[in-house]
Simulated scan of single mutants.
Amino acid sequence: MIKKLLLFCSIILLTACHTDDAAQQDPSDLAPFYKGMDLSFLPENEQLGVVFKDENDRNITDNYDYLASRGVNLIRIRLWVSSSNASYSLENLKAQVLQVKAAGMDYLLDFHYSDTWADPGSQEIPFIWLHQTDQELLTTVSDYTTQVLLELKNQGTEPAIVQIGNETNNGLLWPIGQIYNGSVENFDTYIMITNAAIHAVRSVSPESQIMIHRAGIADSSYFFDQLNIRNVDFDIAGLSYYPWWHGMNVSTAENELNSFARSVTQKVMIVETAYPFTLSWNDNLNNIIGLNNQVSPGFPATPAGQRNFMMRIHNMVKNLPNEQGLGYCYWAPDWVAHDRSNETFMNGSSWENLALFDFEHKVTEAMEVFLLN
């Protein structure tokens, strides 16, 4: 009888301890599903006096607080090494991430390692890094990455995710880190540069996850295979998916994403995507998307079509097996036309019909998707 009583007491004690542990578990310890936006344009828009409106047609007084209240939990921000456009400088980044953090959101730091746009067609070495030897460039990349992260760490704003290069389909820092030169393939130098940056991130900001970013889904398995067989130390495989550039059929893209996820061990994120709410225009700049043949079947260029497209993106990433999908980011939801008679880069917008704010700067229906779990 005594043994049975002792056994019963032990079970009760173990159960109580287990319950206490579960009750004390911090929800923040659970991996988030990111519903993000690239807001690199926002500081410049705000300086220009752009005022956005919420779903009730009221002026939004704090864009970061508003987006956080609508379910956005990650802000992506690009960083250029040095440029005449200070909007993508380290000083502006430091100021912007303070606002992001104050609103309770995480941020993704997008290192371009260039003075200008880096993408599959352009990966220019920063002017002040020109004429360096391969070894000097490795040291420079490491030192630069370290310095940026130290400044962010010193103000208490370490990034949740650090992206090493932007759309690096053909490497970065051309021609030194270029993967393809004609028919010749060489991943080695690109990977050495990438490893130099990764080592700096791990040393300065070990809590940050590291992303490698490639444009497109269909052919990405081979690229990431080359990184994995060379033991590149990264956490997230980031992909861009714009239907007009990467495959018009969304069902095909979903199948490709599932196949890709099975080919890597890292988390998967659609780190750039967007969709039109109209094919009309509202300024004097030509829009990137304006033709019926640029619209995916089943997703018309309407506010509802834009919402349904983003719903599909949400679900295809969320439903990847083994919770491998980390989330998605909408690119430039705020790049609206400001001065409609002006054709300068920012005052006009070739992206105005792909934003998540309409021609009156009122939020579109697609914002509802960010409230989903």
Results as ranks from 00 to 15, higher is better:
Ile2Arg: 13
Lys4Glu: 13
Ser10Ile: 14
Ile11Asn: 00
Asp20Cys: 11
Asp21Lys: 11
Asp26Val: 11
Ala31Gly: 08
Tyr34Gln: 03
Pro43Glu: 06
Val51Trp: 01
Asp57Gly: 13
Asn59Glu: 15
Thr61Leu: 14
Ala68Asn: 08
Leu90Phe: 04
Ala95Val: 06
Ala95Thr: 13
Gln96Met: 07
Ala102Thr: 07
Gly104Leu: 10
Tyr107Pro: 00
Leu108Val: 08
Leu108Cys: 07
Asp110Cys: 03
His112Tyr: 07
Asp119Gln: 11
Glu124Phe: 04
Trp129Met: 14
Trp129Asn: 01
Ser142Val: 07
Thr146Ala: 08
Thr146Asp: 02
Val148Arg: 01
Ala160Lys: 11
Leu172Ser: 11
Leu173Tyr: 03
Trp174Arg: 03
Asn186His: 10
Tyr190Cys: 06
His199Glu: 11
Val201Gln: 06
Val204Ala: 08
Pro206Trp: 10
His213Lys: 09
His213Met: 14
Ala215Asn: 12
Ala215Ile: 11
Gly216Met: 06
Ala218Thr: 14
Phe224Arg: 03
Phe224Asp: 01
Gln226Ala: 07
Tyr241Phe: 09
Gly247Lys: 05
Met248Phe: 03
Asn249Trp: 03
Ser251Asn: 10
Glu254Asp: 12
Asn258Leu: 10
Ala261Tyr: 03
Arg262Ala: 15
Val271Pro: 00
Asn284Val: 14
Leu285Ile: 15
Asn287Glu: 06
Asn287Ile: 03
Gly290Pro: 00
Leu291Ala: 11
Asn292Arg: 12
Thr302Cys: 04
Arg312Glu: 13
Pro321Asp: 09
Gly327Ile: 08
Tyr328Asn: 05
Ala337Ser: 15
Arg340Ala: 08
Glu343Ala: 13
Glu343Asn: 14
Ser350Gly: 10
Trp351Glu: 11
Trp351Arg: 01
Ala355Ile: 02
Phe357Ser: 02
Asp358Arg: 02
Phe359Arg: 05
Glu360Lys: 08
Glu360Ser: 14
His361Trp: 09
Lys362Leu: 06
Lys362Ser: 12
